[in-house]
Simulated assay, not measured.
Amino acid sequence: MILIKEFEFDAAHNLVHYHGKCENLHGHTYKLVVKLEGQPDEEGMIFDFVELKNMVNEKIINKFDHAYLNNIIPQPTAENIAIYTWENLEKHINRDNCRLYEVEVWETKTSGVIYRGE
C-alpha cells in the first residue's frame, strides 16, 4: 500500500546558478506530497496521518513556509528541495512496517519533481 499526505507552503527563492528569469528573486506556492510504502500494523494503519502531519510540519513546512529558501538550501531548485525533504524525513519515518517511498515537490500546477532516494 502507498500512504499519501499533501502539504502546501509559500516561499521565495532565486536560482543563483541559473541564467534566465528564475535567477531573479521570485516566489511560489509549493505543493509537497509525501508518500510512504508499507503494510498496516496492528492498529490497521501504515502510519498515523496526524503523526505524519506533525512530523512534516516540524521538519519541513515550519522551516520553508514564508521563508527565503536560499537561506536553507544553497540552490533551491525543486530537485534540491525534494532531496532536502527526503534526507530530513527518512530516518523519522522508516519503521518495520513502512518506509518513505517518494517525495513530490511542485513549484506550479504543471511543474514538479519526484524523488525516491538514491
Rank of each mutant, 00 (worst) to 15 (best):
L89M: 09
I81Y: 10
P76Y: 01
E90Q: 14
K91T: 15
P76T: 08
I72G: 03
E90H: 11
K91V: 10
T77C: 09
I83S: 04
T77Q: 07
E79C: 02
Y68M: 13
D96S: 14
N70V: 11
I72Q: 03
A67S: 15
I73H: 06
R95G: 08
I93R: 01
N80H: 13
N80E: 15
H92Q: 09
W86L: 10
N88V: 01
T85D: 02
P74Q: 05
I93F: 00
A78C: 15
Y84D: 05
L89W: 02
N88T: 07
C98N: 13
N88M: 02
W86E: 05
E79M: 03
A78T: 12
E79Q: 15
N88W: 00
I72T: 11
E79W: 06
N80V: 08
E87V: 05
N71G: 00
N94V: 13
C98P: 07
I81F: 05
L69C: 07
T77E: 07
Y84I: 10
I93G: 01
Y68C: 11
T85Q: 01
T85M: 01
A78F: 01
N97D: 10
W86C: 03
P74M: 10
E87W: 02
R95S: 14
N97E: 08
K91Y: 03
Q75M: 13
N80G: 07
Q75K: 08
N97H: 09
N71Y: 09
N97K: 00
Y68S: 12
N71D: 15
C98L: 04
I72S: 04
Q75T: 08
N94K: 13
A82Y: 12
E90Y: 06
W86V: 03
I81N: 08
I93L: 04
I93Q: 00
N88G: 00
P76F: 09
